[in-house]
Simulated scan of single mutants.
Amino acid sequence: MRERYASGISDDTAKQMIDLLNANLANVIDLTLDGKQCHWNLQGTGFIGVHQLLDETSDRILEVSDTIAERIVILGGQPNGLASRVVKESILDDYPTDITEVDQHVRELTNRYKKVAEALREAIATAGEAGDEDTADLFTEASRIIDKDAWFIGANAPKK
Rank of each mutant, 00 (worst) to 15 (best):
K36D: 01
D55I: 04
N24L: 04
R60T: 08
A119F: 03
I153C: 01
H39F: 11
G49Q: 09
L82N: 14
N22Q: 08
H51R: 06
G81V: 07
L138Q: 10
L138S: 02
F139A: 08
N80V: 06
T135V: 08
E101G: 08
I29W: 03
E133T: 14
E56H: 10
R2Q: 15
A6Y: 02
G76W: 00
T140G: 13
D103K: 06
A127P: 05
Q78C: 13
P96R: 13
L53A: 00
L92F: 02
N41S: 06
R2H: 10
A117S: 03
A69Q: 00
E3F: 15
E141T: 15
L138R: 01
V87L: 13
T13L: 11
D30N: 12
A119K: 04
N156P: 04
H105K: 07
L31F: 00
R85N: 13
E70F: 08
A119D: 02
R2K: 14
Y5L: 14
R60H: 13
R107W: 05
G76R: 02
A155G: 14
V28G: 04
V87I: 15
S65K: 08
L20N: 03
T32K: 13
T45R: 13
M17C: 01
D94A: 15
V50G: 07
Q16I: 09
A23M: 07
D66W: 10
R71F: 03
F139E: 02
T97H: 11
D103I: 05
Q52M: 12
Q37N: 13
I124A: 09
D137T: 04
R121C: 08
G154E: 05
T126A: 15
P96L: 15
S84G: 08
T32P: 01
D134Y: 03
E89S: 14
R112S: 06
T45Y: 10
H39P: 07
D66S: 09
E56F: 11
N80D: 11
A69W: 00
L54K: 04
G76A: 10
E56T: 14
Y113L: 03
L54H: 05
P96A: 13
L82E: 14
A14M: 04
A117N: 09
G44M: 05
I153K: 09
N24T: 03
A123F: 03
S7H: 12
T67V: 07
N22P: 01
Q104P: 02
D59S: 14
P158T: 15
R60P: 07
M1E: 00
Q37F: 06
E56I: 14
G44S: 04
T110V: 10
I99T: 01
E70V: 10
L21Y: 00
A150C: 12
N41E: 02
A117H: 00
H39M: 10
I145Y: 07
H105I: 03
A83P: 07
N41I: 06
A155M: 13
L138K: 03
G128Q: 06
K148W: 05
K36I: 08
S84R: 15
I99D: 08
G131K: 05
D11R: 14
M17W: 03
E141H: 11
D134S: 06
I153D: 04
E133G: 10
